[in-house]
């Protein structure tokens, strides 16, 4: 009996180990290995084209830190990410809670509609919103006599960030809602019933039942949104191209421009590595906060 149990544990732990092998191997070869090569380039002066390059140590990193465009991009990203994360997580949480109620009428219609933006590729989003900001919003703004939106908001240094933000949120809420909804599904219905019998009010139910089950997925959504805010790229290229006057130049746009348009490949990677470290740090702080609150 004793022996059999021991053998089973070995079988189990061996299987568990084998479970991790395919994903880890793939990930190492096609993810980590290219990243390591990339990091190595960041310590050289390779321009992305020449055959020759030499090791220059940390000087790409130092140049990046002292560059005013890089600093501006960091500021933009932080502002943008803060606003985007609050809006996206807030809206998608509300929507997920609404959609989690089976008594909602026309549920699948609403869900279908709310999912639409996620399906669209960047190309169509860029084309449509450029036209909307150029031709539709100003007309509405003039009609309602609101000066802030009476002309193309992408054209002004102070408002362009909001134009980009609106489109980013418009696109991202759908997927975040889907994830949160999946998280809500892990809370068993009978717990709610028991709570109702115990006379819990709506807030108590949310605080003590929904929240603990939602929290793991919520923190995943938070981190993914922080990441997508800090690496925002294609929306900006499609809408403002970093302008006007650099007002919406994000780190990813800067990195791409440096790497491909300005032939400073290794420098661009150094910038990207700094960005990586920033995202890691923020996410680490975020997880350690939410881990403290986590209830198993």
């Amino acid at each position: 009996m004793e022996k059999k149990k021991k053998k089973k544990i070995t079988e189990k732990s061996l299987s568990m180990f084998l479970f991790t092998v395919p994903a880890t191997v793939l990930y190492c070869v096609f993810f980590i290995y290219p990243i390591i090569i990339g990091i190595m380039y960041s310590f050289t002066d390779w321009n992305g084209l020449s055959k020759d390059y030499k090791f220059i140590g940390l000087s790409n990193y130092i140049t990046a830190f002292t560059n005013s465009r890089f600093q501006n991009a960091v500021k933009f990203n932080i502002r943008f990410t803060l606003m985007a994360v609050i809006l996206i997580v807030g809206l998608s949480l509300i929507l997920a809670l609404i959609f989690n109620n089976s008594k909602l009428r026309c549920m699948s219609l609403f869900r279908g509609i709310y999912f639409f933006p996620a399906v669209l590729g960047m190309l169509v989003v860029g084309l449509i919103f450029n036209e909307i900001f150029y031709r539709v919003v100003p007309v509405i703004g003039k009609g309602l006599n609101i000066p802030a939106i009476s002309s193309n908001i992408l054209a002004s240094k102070s408002t362009a960030i909001y134009g980009v933000l609106i489109v980013h949120v418009w696109l991202a809420v759908a997927m975040a809602t889907v994830m949160l909804l999946a998280g809500l599904q892990s809370a068993p219905e009978d717990l709610y019933e028991a709570a109702v019998l115990d006379g819990a009010n709506r807030w108590q139910k949310f605080r003590y039942i929904t929240m603990p089950f939602l929290l793991p997925v919520l923190s995943v959504v938070l981190i993914l949104q922080i990441k997508s805010g800090l690496t925002v790229y294609d929306i900006i290229v499609a809408l403002t191209n970093g302008g006007p006057g650099g007002a919406t130049e994000s780190l990813a746009v800067l990195i791409y421009n440096h790497g491909f348009k300005e032939v400073k490949f290794s420098y661009a990677i150094a910038e990207a590595m700094i960005l990586t470290i920033v995202i890691c740090a923020i996410s680490f702080i975020q997880t350690s906060i939410s881990n403290k609150k986590k209830v198993y």
Partner: peptide
């Protein structure tokens, strides 16, 4: 136009 900085090549 005043919002020239928001006008792209497509428009």
């Amino acid at each position: 136009p005043d919002d020239i900085l928001g006008i792209g090549r497509d428009q």
